[in-house]
Design a protein around this nucleic acid. Structure first.
Lengths: 223, 223
DNA sequence: CGTAACTTGCTGGCTGACAAGCAAGTGGAG
DNA sequence: CTCCACTTGCTTGTCAGCCAGCAAGTTACG
């Protein structure tokens, strides 16, 4: 009974509160979906009042868009960083592919909320929104990055597209279904060895699908 | 002004109406999600009144469970039929795998609503429900079927698990992301050639991951 | 065959719960 | 004093579930 204040009342800080609301909204949208999450819940989770999310983001939909944009921006940075690293290494493309698989698996495992948000978005969200242009931007960037990293000739474009599609499928899917299908199969996704085993498995699968390594004239030697 | 009846008023048929409600609910739950679908919408889509879904299924959650159970039951039948067919054929396992991939891709393409329902369920649904035991049953059956079809030795259990996980990932994922990621990559999922190309690609990937074909003593020769 | 008694598919009004958004209010910091 | 961060009261709307009722169809009975 020393204080009447229900909470310790830290100093006011719009930037920090805004971030807290974004974090809370990201978690709730990812866990429950857009329609099943209320602004009041988001406020409570962020440690603020019912009305604060609306104060910062006007409407629930704008808050949702802000969450998605922040997530996509982070993903874009990660893709770009991986691309730069892969290109600088100058390793043979088998190793580059192995590294890309490893990076991607790690990224997915480290960002379960992001993966769930994307998946919900792909399902058409709970309400139908206009598409998010940033999503396509990240997709394009990832496609370009992988194609460049692996030095795909233009002739094998169809192969490259399917390879990328497979890479994404193989990395995302187990994460999304970690608690359902993966366990039903008999795999423990929380086991220490799981991620390593998965990386080896995915790399082995994809290596077999690389087109013949004829380093054609399309190889870029800029700089 | 010949009749006062607003609709042609077909004869009453509880079984048919029940099915219509189930169909409407399946479509809406798959498209919009549980929380974003209302009983009134479901009724309207089924061509009945607001109260009819509740009349047949008591609550919205019970209706949802009925939808899921019907879907899983159909999936289970499909898995069993494919298993029987594969075992009877007596082909080498490479061909069996190719057939399984083809069947699975076709099934997924023919049941987009089912795939979406499963995906939403894996995301934790919009509200948290208890898990559906029928889902695990289908999973178990599919695992057993594939292992048996391909005559996996017990020693390669981990390989078999990851192979199945990859098969499911490679078939489901492009269907789920047909309108988002797949198009972003530059593939047209509605093209005639898409399914065939995808089948070949997936088969090629998975064939490379089959363990050595030592037909060990664990080979079942029952009957 | 005919009609009254009864069952059952199906409807629509009602209610309480809850949520989004708004706007007035509060209180701390410069 | 005055912004600005943040809260709280209120309005409006939606939705699930309940329930009384109606009418299509069925059985009992003359």
């Amino acid at each position: 009974m020393a204080t009447l204040r229900p909470a310790p009342r830290r100093t006011r800080d719009a930037e920090r509160t805004r971030t807290q609301v974004l974090d809370a909204a990201e978690a709730l949208f990812a866990e429950r979906g857009f329609a099943a999450s209320s602004m009041a819940e988001i406020g409570a989770r962020a440690g603020v009042s019912r009305g604060t999310p609306g104060y910062f983001f006007r409407t629930k939909e704008l808050l949702y868009r802000a969450v998605m944009e922040r997530s996509f921006a982070e993903a874009l940075e990660t893709v770009r960083a991986g691309r730069v690293r892969a290109l600088r290494s100058g390793r043979p493309r088998a190793e580059v592919l192995e590294g890309a698989v490893s990076d991607y698996v790690d990224f997915v495992a480290a960002h379960p909320l992001f993966i769930r948000l994307i998946q919900r978005e792909a399902l058409g969200a709970d309400d139908a929104f206009g598409d998010l242009p940033l999503g396509r931007a990240v997709g394009d960037e990832a496609v370009a990055a992988l194609a460049q990293e692996l030095g795909f000739p233009t002739g094998a474009r169809a192969e490259a597209q399917h390879l990328l599609l497979s890479l994404v499928a193989l990395t995302w899917f187990p994460q999304l279904h970690a608690d359902t299908l993966v366990r039903a199969i008999g795999i423990d996704p929380s086991a220490k060895r799981f991620l390593a085993t998965r990386k080896r498995h995915i790399t082995a699968l994809l290596l077999g699908a690389l087109p013949a390594p004829h380093r054609s004239s399309s190889r870029r030697s800029r700089r």
